[in-house]
Design a protein around this nucleic acid. Structure first.
Lengths: 338, 338
DNA sequence: TCTAATACTTGGAGCGCTCCAATCATGACG
DNA sequence: CGTCATGATTGGAGCGCTCCAAGTATTAGA
């Protein structure tokens, strides 16, 4: 009942364990004749290589650990999709660690992977400190996705969030809006850059005085509450740019609650282009981050370190795009104040 | 730069590797004096136990592999939450495998875990065949969550979907609805039971003739399309029970499209009580599955096998509950046909 | 002071596999 | 037919850790 070992396969096939090892690894210099015999013996025994032993002996695991800050966020799932596709193609296996939406959880996950001696680690939406990242980077190749963090120890892949926010604001301004408010993402990853892009672009359009930021936290409830405040101001904004889709849906909810029609009375733009934005019922204009590309690029960077011998840090930035749906439209005709 | 080994720690602390091993495992019979020295040496060296070697030598990994059918579905994330909490408490580490929404992906993930010699595997939303499950169960402890599959080889944890569907229909009937249609989940996990519960309950209320099932696939697009058909029928249903929240949101979209108000013109009930249902903007009446409990119970069952020595299969069923929100309401006054 | 019992420590044989150096087979070639 | 080059196999020394069996302090009791 215990797992059969290579030794047993070797005996049954009447060859050495070394040969079995070669066959299991698909080495080229094995005669077809022997290969077939070994494979047959392995199959009959139900042999399954012991990765632990293999990794220990070879000092490689061909495994990439991916730490997701939050398993609930489908945003990360798509990054994993791209990453995994690339990993599959290169013969690496991918294991996922749950950051449990907390710094401690992320750290634990990283530690687990480090102890497992994975070849490299990718962190998506990491919230741990840069110094903690550098510490991890001292022991493996590390790539951070979706969080800008300049360091010479590890690589990063990001979308240009300042630019993304600019796209959103430009879009709204193009529709005639002037009172454009922002529901921000607090201290979440990318929130600062989006806030900055918003503020800069507003100023750029001479709308600096109209700028209004209400504090959110990337959650639906946060978006809803923030929008509630914003909509209570008179004159109220005609458009709200939310720091992510989830809070944008919160804004939608607040609009419903206030009896405002979208986009007739209020235009809303989200960020991330998640599945949420795509649904008919929400149909959110939003900023698309090429998530699968982010994942793919993250793996490429890792492989450059693992197999290409690169050691200098690379900080890759990808351009976001605007996806127009039905939550944004022309500014409503001014009436009342101003 | 290479990782320091136990050997080096031992030398530095002036003790044997065996003692270091004891300290690293937190064994009780070590003098405080030595323990401190070892810990100090380990710290200075930046020693990190090599889990591969440890697991190989101890023939235990204290690791549970969780295979998620679909990383995008937050439903599974909550199962993992419950499971992980329990695992943390018991000192097991949790690794997640991506089933990539395909049978092949699930099989690969299982194989990876098997090769890693994890102590047990939990599959959430598994779609592979029962025989494939049994094969895996021959090599480790296996628990299947969210999929009924009678077998003597492994355990399952489920909610009673027939009962859940009954709750949904009873709720709608209680509101006066008679023309209650169902958007089903095709061949997805639990879909058959929900369909059955729907049909049974309709008949039970003498509404067998009003029963109408339109084919969905647990996706938003599928729900939308199915609802489109349903709403084109005359007289159209006054309520739709969707097989999951995602398709319920699809139904919502279709209702928007048809200019129907929810719940005034059409009541909608979903299934799963996901975050989607909870959002203000959707506010879906739905059937709650106690997901975290499912995860916790799955781990408990696993531990019973791992540490309790249980070998007989257990099939655990949990009761779902109805969560009332604003997508369902009284039947609109009859007008026109019938 | 001596002995027995208890509390700590340690040597070293594996765990199952990889990988290098060495050996054996084969076939081409002069 | 001997010599080489090339390809196929194998023996065995680790990889870093755990886990006895066995040994050495220490302490309590006689």
């Amino acid at each position: 009942m215990a797992h059969p070992t290579m030794q047993q396969v070797a005996e049954r096939a009447g060859v050495s364990t070394a040969l079995v090892s070669l066959v299991m690894r698909g080495a080229p210099n094995v005669s077809d004749h022997r290969r077939a015999r070994v494979l047959k013996a392995a199959d009959e025994l139900g042999y399954r290589p012991n990765v632990l032993a293999r990794n220990l002996a070879s000092r490689r695991t061909r495994t990439i650990g991916v730490v997701l800050n939050d398993l609930h966020n489908p945003f990360f799932a798509e990054i994993v999709d791209g990453l995994q596709r690339a990993a599959d193609a290169d013969g690496y296996r991918v294991l996922i660690g749950n950051g449990k939406h907390s710094k401690a959880g992320e750290r634990e996950s990283v530690e687990t992977f480090l102890q497992l001696r994975v070849d490299g680690i990718v962190m998506a939406g990491a919230t741990i400190s840069v110094s903690a990242m550098e510490e991890a980077a001292a022991s493996t190749a590390l790539v951070i996705v979706g969080r800008t963090a300049r360091s010479t120890k590890f690589d990063t892949v990001n979308t240009d969030d300042v630019h993304g926010a600019r796209l959103a604001v430009d879009h709204l301004v193009g529709l005639g809006h002037e009172r454009i408010a922002h529901v921000d993402g607090g201290s979440g990853a990318g929130a600062a850059a989006r806030r900055k892009g918003y503020a800069q672009t507003m100023s750029g359009h001479g709308l600096g005085e109209q700028a209004m930021i209400s504090a959110g936290d990337f959650s639906e409830a946060g978006g809803s509450a923030a929008a509630g405040e914003l909509l209570a101001v008179a004159p109220r904004p005609t458009a709200i740019f939310a720091a992510n889709d989830l809070s944008a849906v919160g804004v939608l909810g607040a609009a419903d609650h206030a009896g405002l029609r979208v986009p007739d009375d209020l235009s809303i733009v989200g960020y991330d282009n998640t599945a949420l934005a795509e649904m008919h019922h929400t149909s959110l204009t939003t900023i698309n981050q090429p998530r699968e590309d982010l994942g793919r690029i993250a793996l490429e960077l890792l492989l450059q370190r693992l197999e290409g011998g690169r050691t200098a840090a690379v900080h890759h930035v990808v351009a976001p795009t605007l996806v127009e749906r039905t939550s944004s439209g022309p500014r409503p005709p001014t009436k009342g104040t101003r």
